[in-house]
Design a protein around this nucleic acid. Structure first.
Lengths: 208, 208
DNA sequence: TGCTAAGCGGAACACTGTTCCGTATCGTTC
DNA sequence: GAACGATACGGAACAGTGTTCCGCTTAGCA
């Protein structure tokens, strides 16, 4: 994830924060906080105590507030961080698997990402301007990624070619909604089904 | 509001709490808390500090927790209290004004009630079972009241007679939504317009 | 190697929800 | 109206939280 700092800086620039290379220790702290916060948010929700996050990150409270003065800053940063991780996983999947398989694997990955985002909707709609750019960031990062995966698979004749990336993104997200705490693998099964649906109308199949 | 204690007891019975006459001082405390909480919720939202409420009510913290062990209990009680106050205002309006005018005045009153309920939707959807009965309570109390006002006005020939109470309730509520902090009397004007719409098709008018 | 700005840690503070218990009040009985 | 038990009250005390502050440490550079 070497381009992460660049991405962060981009986001910073977009928000008007001064764009500057972080000192090594500051970068370490920031990374540790983002990782710890992601875990804590996933298990205890976004309202988890600050100390739980700083303890897991092995960092003092002052350090957290230095980098993320507002709680919303941290939440938004974690969100962007995970969006990036999910989106960046696509190329390596594309390199390792056949196009349709890469698409299937990435959708599963994406569903996993969405599943950890329960309880964020309340924050998103809190009116805090720190969240204003998140939806568009979500779209900007995921649409091209999914578009590319679809394209490759379609070009390879492994799936049909009349699928709108946005439809598929929304559908996948919605599939994760009914999932309860333990859903016995419901979501992965449903996504697999969706991908099979994509394969159904593929030229390679029609041709035989 | 002499029937209030009865109503409270009804609600209590409906929820399985023991139905019992409160001691005089306990009744005073409860009333003071409900009144104070209503004001505080309106100005500072439902997340306002407990001490702000107890201070305004002139009551100790222990007293609040005695009567409302959970915050959701207090919120629900305030809600019911205000629903009652709004619903109970209809008869006196009906006695003082011509039917259509009473209807208009009550809808304005209802709009005022709704306007103070912003920020409650988050609580309502929090999943706390204490709120489960509130929507039906809302409907049970308001539908008959509005139905009676409509009936009277229709029977007097002052408005058309093909209006569904539920439609009107929802419409009025929705009219208050776009209102900002200072909307320069937007909502009252829109409601007046709505009532004029009701009057338009009235028999008394058609007959001339 | 030494210097300086940047960054760090965590004690300390302010504010919150919640509990607890000695005291006060109510309603009843005689 | 006096006495008494049950009920309710008040607010200090406690525990948990977010946030600030500042002496100390470290990274980067000359």
């Amino acid at each position: 994830m070497s381009e992460e700092s660049t991405r962060e800086a981009d986001a910073a620039a977009a928000e008007g924060r001064p764009r500057k290379r972080l000192r090594a220790d500051a970068q370490r702290s920031t990374d540790a906080l983002l990782t710890a916060a992601a875990e804590v948010f996933a298990t205890s929700g976004v309202d988890a105590p600050v100390r739980e996050i700083t303890a897991k990150a092995g960092v003092g409270a002052g350090t957290l507030y230095r980098h993320f003065p507002q709680r919303s800053d941290l939440i938004a940063a974690v969100f962007r961080h995970e969006v990036d991780a999910c989106a960046d996983s696509a190329p390596s999947l594309a390199a390792r698997y056949e196009p349709a398989e890469a698409l299937a694997k990435w959708l599963q990955r994406f569903a996993g990402f969405i599943a950890t985002k329960r309880g964020l909707s309340a924050a998103l709609h809190s009116g805090d301007p720190a969240y204003d750019t998140l939806p568009s960031y979500f779209e900007q990062r995921f649409m091209p990624v999914l578009g590319a995966l679809l394209d490759s698979a379609a070009k390879a004749g492994e799936i049909r070619s009349d699928v709108d990336p946005e439809d598929l993104l929304v559908a996948t997200r919605n599939l994760t909604l009914p999932a309860q705490e333990d859903d016995n693998g419901h979501t992965p099964r449903m996504i697999a089904l969706l991908v099979d649906g994509l394969r159904y109308g593929a030229p390679a199949r029609e041709a035989r």
